[in-house]
């Protein structure tokens, strides 16, 4: 495989293999000197057209643990406003010699477009409302470890709650969770669901409370203030009343259930309870696992092509 653009580029088998590779990377990360020479001489460029310190840092750490060289480009304004096309930007940086671009862009599809203009591998670090595949993989890894489900998610019930419509995390996680066998329920007011769910392997509910006792994973998404300007929500307060995770709601979850969030959290909106006091919260594990998963992805694309016997 050359690029990682979307979860549906991967088979269930691919996802399992990446998660197994992640186990190796977790082991490396636990060493006194968490660094191996697997990608020595490879040049990994982070190209962020939208600010995201945590994702960029996570990829940067992952690349460095594999001894790759890293460069960071932050392009704050859109390429158009500077009069340079995206193609010009890519071709210019690629001319410096690049093995992989880690791309974050506010526009859906930008990473896929970029594949036309460079021979480097493209790793999608989040594009518009479309996909955030490494987030989905790190979430799968977190569930796999948190619920001890190495063989897949058959029988697990995951609810993804919040602004599904505008969420790249939701689009990639639905595909990944379903590929591994989980039953996925989307929970949101109708205005925050996509216009059509044709072909999505999901159920839909507008009633979080009735679902809670049945869930193995409660996955909360960030809800943004600007949704009120588009008349999609009356107020964040009303959203919180219906869908926010309060202590009372958390108490109705089964004891083993995990609470997850891709961050950054909107405290007091979707996360009313203190996540530090929720026994099921694995939100910081998600962040930790993010580095190992990104190491696995970089090694998969730039290293030995996913051959685990070659894993560092």
């Amino acid at each position: 495989m050359k690029h990682l653009l979307a979860i549906d580029d991967l088979t269930a088998d691919d996802i399992h293999r990446l998660l197994e590779l992640t186990d190796h990377m977790v082991e490396i990360s636990g060493r006194p000197i968490p660094k191996v020479p697997a990608l020595r001489g490879k040049n990994v460029v982070s190209l962020f057209f939208e600010d995201s310190t945590r994702t960029r840092t996570s990829f940067d750490t992952a690349a460095k643990r594999l001894s790759a060289d890293t460069m960071n480009f932050t392009v704050s304004s859109s390429s158009v406003s500077k009069g340079e096309s995206l193609r010009d930007t890519i071709e210019t940086i690629a001319a410096m010699g690049v093995d992989a671009f880690v791309v974050r862009h506010r526009s859906s599809g930008a990473p896929q477009m970029i594949t036309r203009w460079t021979n480097a591998s493209i790793i999608n670090a989040g594009d518009g409302w479309h996909q955030h595949p490494t987030q989905a993989l790190l979430d799968c890894y977190t569930i796999r470890m948190g619920l001890n489900r190495r063989d897949g998610f058959d029988g697990l019930h995951v609810a993804i709650v919040g602004d599904i419509r505008h969420s790249r995390v939701a689009r990639s996680n639905v595909q990944a969770f379903a590929a591994l066998g989980a039953r996925v329920t989307l929970v949101a007011p109708p205005t925050l669901l996509p216009p059509s769910l044709e072909g999505w392997p999901v159920e839909v509910s507008h009633d979080l409370d009735s679902l809670l006792p049945d869930l193995d994973v409660l996955y909360l998404l960030r809800v943004q203030r600007e949704r009120m300007d588009d008349a999609l929500l009356p107020s964040l307060h009303e959203y919180s009343l219906l869908y926010g995770l309060t202590d009372a709601r958390a108490a109705r979850l089964p004891p083993h259930a995990l609470v997850m969030h891709p961050g950054p959290m909107n405290r007091g909106v979707e996360m009313v309870a203190d996540p530090g006091e929720l026994p099921g919260s694995v939100i910081l594990n998600q962040v930790t696992n993010g580095v190992a998963v990104r190491m696995a992805v970089l090694f998969w694309l730039l290293g030995s092509g996913g051959d685990l016997s070659e894993a560092p």
């Binding site: 594009d127 790249r168 996509p194 216009p195 059509s196 044709e198």
Partner: peptide, 21 residues
Amino acid sequence: TKGAVMHEGACCSRLGLPGWP
């Protein structure tokens, strides 16, 4: 059609693009 890029339907929902209904 604020910010709309393509027809609103199954395809735009999957692609994560704002729909032009």
